[in-house]
Design a protein around this nucleic acid. Structure first.
Lengths: 358, 358
DNA sequence: CTGAAAGCGCTAACAA
DNA sequence: TTGTTAGCGCTTTCAG
């Protein structure tokens, strides 16, 4: 036994787990059950005893295996977050995901849950229910869901299995799924109202794909504002991109033409990335945003402070959305009192900058 | 027993796990052990038998519990990713994290590991080793590590415990930790060389905090290039920010002064965000970037295509860094042949744009 | 090739 | 308040 002990540390650690627990019990002069009671704060234990156990554990550097605990409790202790693989196809902004994810992560952590990140490849089958069956997660929040048949099928399976989940930023017509969202409709309505107040009369709307319900919501808000103002809705004024900067850039020609023909004097884009692409395109075509044409983005991401002119945008509380989604979902998972199905809409706020000045 | 069955689904599912396994065994006419052998691809089983088991499982919609499997195998099956809480203090770019994380996620997935996201609050104690002791993870990659005592202590503990981990984008002087990084030194050296080639003679370097080793590396690359060109290193030409846009913005006054005094004719910033802040600040002070002064950023994030003028920047293969880190780490975790400690440096590439035109 | 049985580390009755 | 004991669902010897 004079060999190097250092190299063996890992190996020892592996088999020690079972033994070290016994040692702790012995050192504290109690049974293993009591060790468990103390360390997981369960049953009633004499304070005196508890102290001895804690000291023994500390001394032997023992921590219970979360894996074994969770197995015994038949709970994974994990909150799953399903999200599309980001890179390359960068339609969603990293800003959006970072914020929502941080909110979820912070909340989960506060409530003692771990975060399991589940990337979904674009054309992979969406087998969400299996994540529950295999006991990898106790609940999940789904980001970037789309209204397509395979998604609906996967969600139906979750719902029928009674597996707790929460949609973020997406709604499915005809289904009452738990969800947390920003009030996108109010957002673009406010944006349009703001433009009308500033004296603009013909507003173009650059929307995203309709598989995302929020695209539809934003369009509706825009139409609401027009209607309020007694203005006719003109389909010619609605363009569509795919939420990428490039898709905004590509619409610049069409927008420029409308501007030159005096058909429009302002544009609302369904997200900042498209707004920025459009801004660049228009600049190249010699059209001055904030002067010849007003422009409003959506998300109020960090990007909008970096453009010239800075973009008016609709601030969406992504971090808070993440917090809310995780919080409600965990209420459900833990069966907290007052928990139940939910459909939260968080308010948005128009942040005015130079791009929409009169 | 005529009550609604729907409500009971979840509850049933909970207690069914143990039973359904038996049913599968019965239906296939084998023992539970054989079910296990088939479904986890372990021992040798007659093809005929295997088929029956698989069919039975399918029919009864049975999937083994990953939780129980992992418990039995004493492996969590999780790859941990430790990263600082992003929002609010947005020093790191979301771009960086998204890319690296995606690379890690994709690789982990391919190799059958799940991703456990571990947010570290700014001033929380860094107890990385406990993540292993509690069997939450089998290995971990650490993003945004800093060279401060508490971090060094936490890493030392990992190393001595024989717990597999990998640093990304950070190196600790005097320690041979596993790490994957970009060749930042070559990057800023190339940037400086490029500027010198273009005819610029006095280059200012806007660096980040030195708790990040890559700040030091970048500075060194810059100095190397100056030395090569027989130019003296002048400390006055080195400014420091904290990698945020704002910190770049705040240096604009100092830079403008240097430009006006003809002390410098070009700037290299240690990341894009600071470069963009600086660009905005200089613009406000009436200094034209790409004309009166050249500017180069670092990261080649999606931001640099959105500025005017577009920024020359150093492209860093973040996604690949994530892949490489996860891959090497998992080799270690699974004891793959040829695995061992590593210190990978991935090449970077200067992408020229208008901001550094002669 | 397959079955029986022990055990992974922890929790939770049930007794004492 | 504590100890004893029986599982949790799966893997893995060891026989057959």
């Amino acid at each position: 036994m004079r060999e190097c002990t250092r190299v063996h540390l890992k190996h020892d650690a592996e088999r020690e787990e079972g033994l070290i627990r016994k040692k702790v019990a012995a050192l504290a002069g109690v049974s293993e059950a009591t060790v468990s009671r103390v360390l997981s704060g369960g049953g009633a234990v004499k304070e005196e005893t508890a102290k001895r156990v804690i000291e023994a554990a500390q001394q032997l550097n023992y921590v219970p295996s979360a894996l074994a605990q969770r197995f015994a409790l038949r709970k994974s202790g994990n909150l799953g977050v399903i999200l599309p693989m980001l890179p390359k196809v960068n339609l969603f902004s990293t800003y959006y995901f970072s914020e929502v994810l941080s909110g979820i992560g912070m909340t989960a952590k506060q409530r003692g849950y771990d975060l399991l990140l589940l990337f979904r490849e674009p054309h992979e089958p969406r087998d969400y229910a299996n994540l529950f069956r295999t006991q990898k997660i106790d609940g999940c929040v789904i980001l970037g869901a789309q209204d397509v048949p395979s998604e609906r099928a996967a969600l139906t399976e979750l719902q029928e299995g009674g597996y707790p989940f929460c949609l973020v930023n997406q709604r499915f017509e005809g289904e009452a799924y738990n969800s947390v969202d920003a009030d996108q409709q109010a957002g673009s309505r406010d944006a349009a109202r703001h433009l009308l107040t500033q004296g603009f009369r013909s507003i173009c709307f650059l929307n995203g794909p309709s598989v995302y319900s929020n695209s539809q919501d934003r369009l509706q808000g825009y139409r609401d504002a027009l209607e309020e103002a007694g203005l006719a809705f003109d389909p010619v004024q609605v363009l569509t991109g795919n939420y990428s900067r490039k898709s905004g850039y590509l619409q610049a020609k069409a927008v420029a033409a409308l501007v030159r023909e005096r058909k429009i004097d302002a544009v609302i884009a369904a997200n900042d990335r498209m707004a920025i692409g459009l801004l660049q395109g228009l600049k190249e075509l010699g059209i001055r945003v904030g002067d010849e044409v007003a422009l409003i983005g959506c998300d109020d991401s960090d990007l909008v402070r970096m453009t010239d002119p800075p973009l008016t945008s609709i601030r969406v509380p992504f971090f808070e959305i993440g917090c809310e989604a995780a919080s409600r979902l965990l209420d459900l998972v833990t069966n907290a009192e007052g928990s139940g199905s939910f459909d939260v809409k968080l308010p948005v706020k128009l942040i005015e900058r130079a791009s929409s000045a009169p």
